[in-house]
C-alpha cells in the first residue's frame, strides 16, 4: 500500500507541473468581433449571414460583440441608430486548429477582409494603443484571431 500511495502522489505531482502560459489564438466558441462606436449614444448593428439568418444587437454602452457565422464565409453588417448609418460586408474563411496544451479545438480566421464596395462607413481598428483606418485590401485575420477586448473594430459615425 505504501508504494501505491507513492505512485498516486507522484501522479498528483505530475499534474501540478503543467505549463500555464500563453493564450492560444482563436475562438473556442462562435467567433465574434469586438465593436466600439465613437459615440455613447445607443446604436445597433444588424447582422445577416449568407443563409439570410440575422438579427439586430443594440448597445447603450457604445460596445458590443458582433457575431460571425462559423459555418459561413460572408457576413453583412448594418449600423443603425435612428436611421441606418451605413453598412459593410466582411469576407472571411475559418480553419480549425488544435491547441495541444489546452486539449481543445479553436477556430482561427485564415482570411478576414472588408468588402470594398460596401465599406462606406469609416472603420478603423485599435489594439488599445494605436488605431489605423481599415484598408480593404488587407487581411485582418491575425488581428481578429486575438479575441481580446482591447482589439476592437471602431465604427465612426
Amino acid at each position: 500500500m505504501k508504494y501505491l500511495g507513492i505512485v498516486f502522489l507522484f501522479i498528483s505531482v505530475l499534474g501540478c507541473s503543467d505549463p500555464d502560459t500563453m493564450v492560444c489564438e482563436g475562438f473556442n466558441q462562435e467567433p465574434y468581433i469586438h465593436v466600439t462606436g465613437d459615440s455613447k449614444d445607443t446604436f445597433g448593428i444588424y447582422y445577416l449571414n449568407a443563409e439570410s439568418f440575422g438579427d439586430t444587437l443594440f448597445t447603450t454602452s457604445g460596445a458590443l460583440q458582433l457575431p460571425v457565422d462559423p459555418a459561413g464565409e460572408t457576413m453583412y453588417y448594418e449600423v443603425i441608430a435612428d436611421t441606418s448609418l451605413g453598412a459593410f460586408d466582411v469576407r472571411y474563411s475559418l480553419q480549425p486548429k488544435y491547441c495541444a496544451s489546452a486539449d481543445e479545438l479553436v477556430l482561427q480566421f485564415n482570411a478576414f477582409q472588408f468588402d470594398t464596395s460596401s465599406t462606406f462607413l469609416k472603420l478603423s481598428i485599435s489594439d488599445g494603443n494605436t488605431s489605423s483606418i481599415i484598408d480593404t485590401a488587407s487581411n485582418y485575420s491575425s488581428f481578429f484571431n486575438k479575441p481580446k477586448s482591447n482589439h476592437q473594430l471602431l465604427v465612426h459615425f
Binding site: S17, D20, T21, M22, C24, A100, S101, A102
Partner: peptide
C-alpha cells in the same frame, strides 16, 4: 511538459 508552440492557458 515542453511547451507547445500554440500553447494556451488552461481552462
Amino acid at each position: 511538459n515542453s511547451s507547445a508552440p500554440d500553447s494556451t492557458a488552461k481552462d
